[in-house]
């Protein structure tokens, strides 16, 4: 991974829509809300799902205003359907 970039992981239907399982975003963003438009720009097919998605930062659920930093792992999580 490039130093200073954020690693974005996609799962389930989000991986399907994005067409990849992971991406890198190297930009100066401070929160998830600032990161999302860049992810969407790379993978516009995710846009219709936005309202259903949850996020995790470094393996724990996070909200839009939560901080993200270079080196973090951000996961894009569709509605879970285990069981």
């Amino acid at each position: 991974m490039t130093q200073g970039s954020i690693r974005v992981l996609f799962f389930g239907a989000a991986a399907d829509r994005a067409g990849v399982r992971e991406a890198e975003v190297s930009a100066d963003v401070a929160t998830l809300d600032e990161l999302w438009p860049l992810v969407e720009q790379q993978h516009p097919d995710l846009s219709p799902m936005r309202g259903t998605l949850a996020f995790a930062v470094n393996g724990e659920y996070a909200r839009g205003g939560d901080r993200v930093s270079p080196g973090d792992e951000v996961a894009v999580l569709p509605p879970v359907s285990g069981g």
């Binding site: 799962f11 389930g12 239907a13 989000a14 399907d16 829509r17 799902m49 259903t52 995790a56 659920y61 996961a75 999580l77 569709p78 509605p79 879970v80 359907s81 285990g82 069981g83």
Partner: peptide, 25 residues
């Protein structure tokens, strides 16, 4: 488990597949 555990299921049908909960497929 159905609320918080990040696990997803895909139903594979005879005529295609669908991600449960997202209706993407």
């Amino acid at each position: 488990i159905k609320e918080v555990v990040p696990i997803w299921k895909r139903e594979v049908w005879s005529d295609g597949y669908v991600w449960v909960g997202s209706q993407v497929g």
